[in-house]
Amino acid sequence: MKNLLIRNVKLRKWTIVIYAILLLISPLQLVIENNSIITKVMYSLVAMILLFVSVLDSGHTFRLNSKLGHAKAYDFFGSLPVSKKEMLNANYITLILFTLIGAGILSLFNVPNSNVAASDINIDITLPYSYIAINFFAIPIAFKKYSEQKSENISYLMYLLVMLLIIPIIAVLVTLAVLMLFNIKLTMLDYFEPVFNYGFLALSIIFLITNYIIQYKKVN
């Protein structure tokens, strides 16, 4: 499994470089005041990098699968003298490791959260939490058969659109419909903010663990 982990890390070398750069420059935001054109440009560049990382690295298992060789990856590596259990564990460790590191680095910066607002209602969907949840959902949804074999009918772009846009919008609309149906004040929507943040994250963890148990039983 050690060699599989090394393989996965090497395939993510550019991600590691970006993470390292962000980690090194994170203390600068505490000592540099954003009151000049140069610093504003610098902050804008960092914000663009953070946006790039948070979007492109959401569901980074798709990117790893692409570098491994897409659909044929599992057939190839499954033919090598490694056990399926080692492949499963290596991919789960890689997913969790890069996800937590990415979320940790994003949390070091003052990243604007996704915001849903209407009159007195204001809901912030915290980026690091949603980043972890979207990545944790990737394997149960798109790699539920084997952790290196992607479902052919699920594309990376479609996954991002559904997880980043469609599901949050639907969740808010359903919550609004329930409040209106039972004639509850819309300001009560503020109390659902922890549900959107922690509930989505908790659900992703449950799905990830459940899928691991199912896959482990299949390959063991």
Rank of each mutant, 00 (worst) to 15 (best):
W14Y: 14
T15V: 12
I16C: 05
V17E: 05
I18N: 04
I18V: 11
Y19V: 07
Y19F: 14
A20S: 10
A20W: 00
L23R: 05
L24D: 09
L28T: 05
L28R: 01
V31M: 05
I32T: 02
E33H: 12
N34P: 04
N34V: 06
N35P: 02
I37W: 10
I37Y: 03
I38L: 15
I38P: 01
T39P: 04
T39R: 01
K40H: 05
K40G: 15
V41R: 00
M42K: 00
M42I: 14
M42E: 12
Y43R: 11
S44Q: 11
L45D: 04
V46T: 08
V46P: 02
A47W: 08
L50V: 11
F52Q: 12
F52D: 11
S54M: 10
V55A: 13
V55D: 04
L56I: 10
D57S: 13
G59M: 10
H60L: 15
H60C: 13
H60M: 13
H60K: 08
T61C: 12
F62Q: 04
F62K: 00
R63V: 13
N65T: 08
S66H: 15
K67C: 03
L68D: 04
G69N: 06
H70L: 15
H70V: 11
K72D: 13
A73I: 03
Y74L: 14
Y74F: 14
F76G: 10
F76E: 08
F77V: 15
G78C: 07
S79I: 05
S79H: 04
L80S: 03
L80H: 07
V82G: 07
S83E: 13
S83G: 12
S83Y: 05
K85F: 13
K85Y: 10
E86F: 06
A90L: 07
N91F: 04
I93H: 01
I93W: 01
L95Y: 05
I96H: 00
I96S: 06
I96V: 14
L97N: 02
F98Y: 08
T99Q: 10
T99D: 11
I101V: 13
G102W: 02
G102L: 06
G102H: 02
G104M: 03
I105R: 08
I105D: 02
I105Y: 06
S107F: 06
L108Q: 10
L108H: 04
F109R: 04
N110S: 14
P112L: 03
P112D: 04
S114L: 15
S114D: 13
S114C: 11
N115C: 11
V116I: 12
V116P: 00
A117I: 00
A117M: 07
S119W: 06
S119G: 11
D120Y: 03
D120T: 09
N122D: 14
D124L: 12
D124P: 01
D124M: 11
I125P: 01
T126Q: 10
T126N: 14
L127F: 07
L127H: 00
P128Y: 03
P128D: 03
P128A: 09
Y129N: 06
S130W: 07
Y131G: 03
I132M: 15
I134E: 12
I134A: 12
I134P: 11
N135K: 02
N135Q: 07
F136V: 12
P140I: 10
A142C: 05
F143Q: 06
F143C: 05
K145F: 09
S147P: 01
E148V: 13
Q149T: 03
Q149G: 08
K150Y: 06
K150A: 09
S151N: 14
S151Y: 07
